[in-house]
Each structure stands twice: as C-alpha cells, then as structure tokens.
C-alpha cells in the first residue's frame, strides 16, 4: 500500500508544503510505512460502534458581551509585513476563493 507520487503531491498541495524531488520519495516511503502499520486497525471489530467524542457532551456557550479587542499595534506586532494597518501579502495568482 505504497503511496503514489500523485497522492503525495496532492497531499503536499493541500497542506501547502513544498516538497523537493528527493523529499517526495522519502515522504512517500515514510508515510507508507506508517499506513502499513495502521492497517492493523482493519482487524478491529467496529461494527455498530459510534465514533468517540472527547469533551463535554452539551453546548458550552458564553454571553454576548464585548470585551476590549487588542490594539491594532498589538494585533500587528508579530506581522512579517504591514501596510496601512493591515497584513500585507504578495499577489494571489490564478484563483478566487469563497468569501
């Protein structure tokens, strides 16, 4: 069940991580090993089992009361590039996204 290069490329694209040529090979074989190992789960009898939930089982909500936000300076303090009080990014090529 070795991962194909196509799958590795697809996954790297989804994760937005650039992999160089030889890294693709290595990642493919490392991930394949893990996936071979986890195939052990195929032996578990999960018939009729509900997926597990880890936290509280009922909603935890808060009141609709505003609290002071960060100052703009605080919000932008760690930003690699700032302009006009906003985070600056280079141009977006090729595609739109949901707004």
């Amino acid at each position: 069940m070795r991962l194909s290069k196509e799958i590795v490329d697809h996954v790297a694209d989804l994760a937005q991580i650039r992999l160089k040529g030889e890294e693709r090979e290595r990642v493919a074989s490392e991930l394949s090993r893990v996936l071979e190992y986890v195939a052990i789960l195929d032996g578990a009898d999960i018939e009729g089992v509900e997926a597990s939930w880890h936290g509280p089982r009922a909603s935890v909500t808060r009141m609709d009361a505003p609290r002071p936000s960060l100052t703009r300076a605080q919000a932008l303090a760690n930003a690699p590039k700032v302009r006009e009080g906003m985070f600056q990014i280079p141009r977006i090529l090729g595609e739109g996204e949901e707004g």
Partner: peptide, 30 residues
C-alpha cells in the same frame, strides 16, 4: 468577544481568537 461592527478602522476589532494566534480557542456566542 470582539465587537461585531461594520466600517471600523482595519484590524481594530481583533483578538487572539479571530487572529488565529497560537493557543487561542473558540467559545460559542449564545
């Protein structure tokens, strides 16, 4: 708990949660 307001100066209604700062967590508004 940042204000839900339209038309303010950019990035003046932000906090660790809506800036996705490391470690911040969402809590649902009733």
């Amino acid at each position: 708990q940042c204000a839900n307001a339209f038309g303010s100066e950019p990035n003046t209604h932000t906090c660790p949660v809506c800036l996705a700062m490391p470690g911040a967590l969402p809590v649902l508004n009733q």
